[in-house]
């Protein structure tokens, strides 16, 4: 079975979780033998942008020593053989047309999403 993971909710509790929970569960399932591809759409395309920095938060005497590093987590998925796509129009609409994205990420026009969905057995839209 092959599953397309569609990630569209962006920066939801990522500071508390130290990651994006859907990127995380994708890593965990890949480790359990899952065959997965990932589509970043909507504002989640920002996960592919290099230079994200969530460091430095502190609340009173508590300091966050291990902030989320989402672009690194996305890059690690690609290194594990998971195909990761971003929707071109969503990238452009957010002013990221010329931005440097994670190496190996694949740009997909919105019109190409149905064909990407067709090649998976299931589509999980998170």
């Amino acid at each position: 079975m092959k599953v397309l993971q569609v990630i569209q909710s962006a920066y939801r509790a990522t500071l508390e979780e130290q990651d994006d929970t859907i990127v995380w569960i994708t890593h965990a399932m890949k480790g359990a033998g899952a065959d997965l591809e990932v589509l970043l759409r909507g504002s989640a395309v920002n996960y592919a942008v290099l230079g994200q920095d969530a460091s430095g938060l502190s609340f009173g005497s508590w300091r966050q020593s291990e902030p989320p590093k989402i672009a690194e987590d996305v890059a690690a998925l690609i290194k594990k053989g998971v195909g990761v796509f971003v929707v071109e129009e969503d990238v452009a609409e957010r002013g990221l047309g010329n931005a440097r994205l994670v190496d190996g990420i694949q740009r997909l026009p919105r019109a190409g999403i149905p064909a990407l969905m067709d090649r998976s057995d299931q589509v999980w839209m998170w």
């Binding site: 965990a28 399932m29 359990a32 299931q122 998170w126």
Partner: peptide, 22 residues
Amino acid sequence: GTPGDLWRMASESQGTLIIGTR
């Protein structure tokens, strides 16, 4: 359980529906 359980359960099912949050 673990995320591996989700994968196993989905693999053994006719269909799966993910109801995410916002």
